[in-house]
Design a protein around this nucleic acid. Sequence first.
DNA 1: AACTAAAATGAAATCGTTAACAATTCTATT
DNA 2: AATAGAATTGTTAACGATTTCATTTTAGTT
Lengths: 331, 331
Amino acid sequence: MITIKDIARVAGVSHTTVSRALNGNPLIKKATRDKIERIAAEMNYVPNYSAKSLVTKRSFIIGLFFSSIEQGTSASFLVDAIKGITHILDENYNLTVNGIDGVRHYSNIQPQRFDGILVMSQSDEDNAFIYHVKKMGIPLVVLNRQLEDPSIMNVVANDREGVKEAIDHAVQLGHRKLAIIEGKPGFKSSSERKQGFLDSLIAGRLPLNPEYFISGDYSIESGYAAMSRLLNLEDRPTAVFCSNDDMAIGAMNACYAHKVDVPEQISLIGFDDIMFARYTNPALTTVRKPIAEISELGMTMLIQLLQQPETLPQQLFVKTSLVVRDTVAGG
Amino acid sequence: MITIKDIARVAGVSHTTVSRALNGNPLIKKATRDKIERIAAEMNYVPNYSAKSLVTKRSFIIGLFFSSIEQGTSASFLVDAIKGITHILDENYNLTVNGIDGVRHYSNIQPQRFDGILVMSQSDEDNAFIYHVKKMGIPLVVLNRQLEDPSIMNVVANDREGVKEAIDHAVQLGHRKLAIIEGKPGFKSSSERKQGFLDSLIAGRLPLNPEYFISGDYSIESGYAAMSRLLNLEDRPTAVFCSNDDMAIGAMNACYAHKVDVPEQISLIGFDDIMFARYTNPALTTVRKPIAEISELGMTMLIQLLQQPETLPQQLFVKTSLVVRDTVAGG
DNA sequence: AACTAAAATGAAATCGTTAACAATTCTATT
DNA sequence: AATAGAATTGTTAACGATTTCATTTTAGTT
C-alpha cells in the first residue's frame, strides 16, 4: 500500500507537502505540485479514506434511507431514487441504502458515520428516525413526503395540482360521476391527492357523492377491494381516480375479474407513473411523479448543505405531469 | 464525542483495557468488563469506525454492484437483492449500491474501501470489473450469472431445469406447437434457458420448428416485436415461452394489440416471477427465480469468505420453481 | 548587497483505535 | 511465607492522513 510518505521519499519533499499538493492547496509551487502528481500517478497512489476520515471527521458516506425495503411495492421507487442520486453524487462518496425499519440501533446513526442523509419517506412513522438524524446534527434532506416542519429541508412533488390536472382532463372528456380510491389514512400524500380531486370537482361544480369516496392503503390488494365495491354500486361512477398506480393495477385486476372493460365501461386514472403503468393492458393514464428528479434535486440540496451548513432549509416542489394513455375514454 | 480514553478515565483503567473489554477479549476479568460496559453505555459511547478501520484495515463496507442501474428493467431485481442482503448483513456493516457502468475509476475499487463485494451480474461485460476485483484481492461473490471460472464464488439459479419443468407443464396440457422468444444473444442465461426449452421438446419427441425460435434481448419492446412476428405466422404456435417476464409482458401487449386472447388463443410462459407477473391480466404463469434467496446465499458465502479467506470457491445452484397462474390453457 | 515581505516547505502533534510487549496482580503450591 | 505460573492490566507505538506553527527559500525594494 502506497502512502504519502512513500511519495514524499521519491519526490524528495516532506509528506506534508505531498498532502497539500494532492489536495489542491494553493500554497504549493506549480512545479512541485506537477512533479508530485506525476509521481503519485506513476506509483498508483490511492488515498486511505480511513485515515482521511479520522482526521477530517468526514466519512464520505451518504446514507439513503427508505421507510422500508422489506415490504411495500416501492420497487421502481428505489431504482429511480438511486438512479437520480448516483447521477449527481461524486464518485468518491459512497451511497449506502437502508430501510428505516431495519435500523435497530439508533446509535449507529451519527455524524461520524454519515456525512449526510437522504430520507425517502413514505410514512409519518419515519418521523422518529428523521428527528433522531436532525438531533444528531447530520445534514438531512427528506424526500417525497411533505413535512410540516419548516426547519427540515424537504423536496416533494406537487401532488395536489397534479391530481387536479388529471381530474380536469377526465371532466373535460365528459365525465360527471367520478370516484376516488384514497391512499393510506394519515399520510400527507393521501390527503393532498384527495384535495386535488376535490379541487377539480368543486371547480367543475360537480356533485360530491359520498359513495364515490372509498378508502384504500396504497396496496394493490386494497385497490382491488375498493374497485370491487365501486363496481357493485347500483349507480357506478364512470371514472375512478386511484391515489397511486399500484391501486390502479389492483383496480384493473378487479375490472378484469368482473369482466368490465377499461376504458369502455369505466375509466381509470393512476398516480406515480411507475414503470409498469406503460405496459398494463390497456396502458394506464396516470400522473407522473418524477422520483428521479426529486432525488437529484434532494442530493443537490444535500451537497449544498454539506458545503454550506448555514444554508436555510427550504421546501421545494417538483412539478408532476399528466401522462395520457389509454384508460380514460369520453364520459 | 466520547472516546475510549474518556471511558478509561472514568473507569480508572487504561484505554487498552477498555478497548479489550468492549471487543470481547477474553483476557479481561468479568468484573472489569461489566463495569466498563456499564460506563460505556451510560456515556453513550459509540466507536469511531474511521479509527477502527485505520488500524484494522477493515472498512465495514460491503459493495453491491449491478451491471447497471441507469438502464434496464432490473427494478424488482434490485429491491429483492437488497432485501436478501440486508436480511443477512450485520448492522454495523454498511451496504453500498452501485452500477458497474458508473464506476469510472477502478482505482476506487480496492481492499481498503470494500471488505467484500457482491456482483449482481447480468452481462458478460461485467467481466472486466469482476477480474479487477479479483486481482485486487477483495473477497468476491458473483450472483445471478453463471461464470465459467471455477476460481470465483458463484451463486446462480438452475435456469435450465426450471424452464424444462415449465415447458413440460405446457406439453402435458397438450401443447405441441411451442415457440421460444430468446434472451439477449451472448448471455449465458439465454442459452441455458433455451437449453431447458429444447430439453423438454426433445424429451417429449416434439418437432423443432425453426420458425418458432425468435430472438429477443430481454427488453419489453423486444418481447412485443417477437410476439408480433409469431402472431403473423401462418401456422401459429399454441404456446410461447418468453425467456424473461419483461418480454412476456411485451408479448402480452402484442397480443392485446392484435386482439388475440391469452390464454384462449395462445398460451404464455415467462421467467423470473417479477413482482408484476402476478398482476397482469391474465396473471402470468412463470418460473420463479428466487433473487432474494440467491442474494442471501451470496451474502452468507461472502461473510464466510471474510471470516475464512481460505474457503474454497464453489458454484452454488438455487432451485427455481414453476408458478402456475392463468396464461397457459389446454393446448 | 542588504533587508524585508511573501511564498513555499517542513516538523511535530493529532485524530481514536488496536496490538505487541512489558509489567503487575492473583492463586495455588510448597 | 515464598514463589512459580497464570491471569489481568498497562505502556507505547503504530495506522495514514491533516493541520498548526515554525522555518527556509524566493523575490522585490532600497
